[in-house]
Amino acid sequence: MTFEHIPEIAAVILFGVGFTLLLIDRNLIKKIIGFSMTDSGMYLYLAAKGYVAGRKAPIVENGVTDAAAYINPVPAGLVLTGIVVSVACTAVMLALTVRLYKRYRTLNIDEIANLARKEDG
């Protein structure tokens, strides 16, 4: 048992729990939480893969320009971009959820669909 893989294990657990929520739960807010967890899991995995034990964040310090002194900067950039994307998606989902809740007073997607069908007649 090595402890260096703990971030990856945590990432897989986060992804699994989040993806299951996103797929199975009927409550819209829980679906959004599940989506956030899924993405967090993936970003954690990516960040863990970019990390090299014993090296520093890729910001030049004290004139050390040797690449071997720093960790891989690309995953950090990807994680940042990804976070922006998932914030935008979460905001859109929350806005839709608010509109649906104001109209139907429930967060259950099946009930909402039934109510909408009845409304149209």
């Binding site: 989506f35 998606c89 859109v92 989902m93 509109r99 139907y104 909402i112 909408a116 409304e119 149209d120």
Partner: peptide, 16 residues
């Protein structure tokens, strides 16, 4: 129509 909102949420979930 409310159904367009429901459709949008379903679309978003499938796309996410």
């Amino acid at each position: 129509p409310g159904r367009s909102l429901v459709a949008a949420v379903r679309y978003m979930i499938m796309n996410l």
